[in-house]
């Protein structure tokens, strides 16, 4: 058997693996329960809180990731390697550990000061956003940086010599050229935020109708041995994931055209 055939067989086996998992969901799927849950206030709350926090996280992550990625790709500055390294944290440390790190921080004096005087994160909705942010911003920065890395810095140099300021050169040349990576980073941040569980449950807790995002709802249903309920929420999460993936591909195709 030649290598190409082995490679194709591997691809099919991966597809099969996930497909079986998805199909197994339907073995516990109850239509009457589905109709009941889809109209329930708790489900709508989970959808709403998941979407809202994911949107806010995406916006905040993007605000930090875009300039940071540009700096890491284009500029030389003291401590650049340290910054680059620390952005790998979400990749090498589990989300639960990141959530625990946040929880520990809010037990220190600066953390308590922030909680008392500005904004409360522990067991609050703001905690969901912070947990999602800490697990996604590093990846978003990396993705956008990879986009900038692919663009020759000479494009910007040419734009500058043609009269553009640094900011104009960025927004008229580098930004549109890195559009594909930026869109991918935005959507991945959103998708990762929607599905984030470990850091969220550690920092914001699993409180019904307060910090009950979709993954936390699945966790709560499983804790109560509500298998049909858990299957319904998993199905909802899968649908949202597929929609996000579809939009990503659509946008990528549009930006390629």
């Amino acid at each position: 058997m030649d290598f190409k055939k082995i490679a194709i067989a591997s691809a099919y086996s991966l597809f099969l693996f996930y497909f079986i998992l998805i199909v197994s969901l339907f073995t516990v799927f109850d239509v009457s329960r589905f109709l009941e849950l889809i109209k329930s206030e708790r489900f709508l709350f989970s959808i709403k809180i998941s979407m809202l926090t994911a949107f806010i996280t995406t916006f905040i992550s993007f605000s930090f990731a875009l300039p940071a990625a540009y700096a890491l790709s284009r500029c030389e500055f003291a401590g650049k390697r340290a910054v680059d390294l620390i952005l790998e944290l979400p990749l090498i440390v589990s989300p639960v550990a990141l959530g625990a790190l946040l929880l520990l921080f809010f037990n220190t004096s600066p953390g308590i000061f922030i909680q008392d005087n500005y904004i409360s994160f522990v067991y609050e909705v703001a905690g969901i956003i912070l947990a999602q942010f800490i697990t996604s911003v590093g990846i978003a920065t990396r993705l956008i940086k990879a986009g900038f890395d692919e663009i020759s810095p000479r494009y910007e140099a040419v734009a500058r010599t043609l009269g553009a300021s640094g900011l104009q050169a960025f927004f008229t040349v580098s930004f549109p050229l890195a559009k594909k990576s930026i869109i991918a980073a935005l959507i991945l941040t959103f998708a990762k935020s929607i599905g984030e569980f470990g850091a969220t449950v550690t920092l914001a807790g699993a409180m019904p109708m307060k910090t009950e995002t979709l993954p936390i709802a699945i966790y709560l249903r499983l804790s109560n041995a509500d298998i049909e309920g858990a299957a319904f929420y998993i199905f909802a999460l899968l649908i949202m994931g597929f929609i996000v993936t579809y939009i990503t591909r659509l946008l990528a195709r549009t930006s390629n055209a």
């Binding site: 020759s152 494009y155 040419v158």
Partner: peptide
């Protein structure tokens, strides 16, 4: 001076016409 203040036009080796 910054590049945009010098009024020096530059054509690099790889030409760098903006592809978009």
């Amino acid at each position: 001076m910054n590049p945009e203040q010098r009024n020096v036009s530059y054509v690099p080796q790889d030409i760098c016409l903006f592809p978009h």
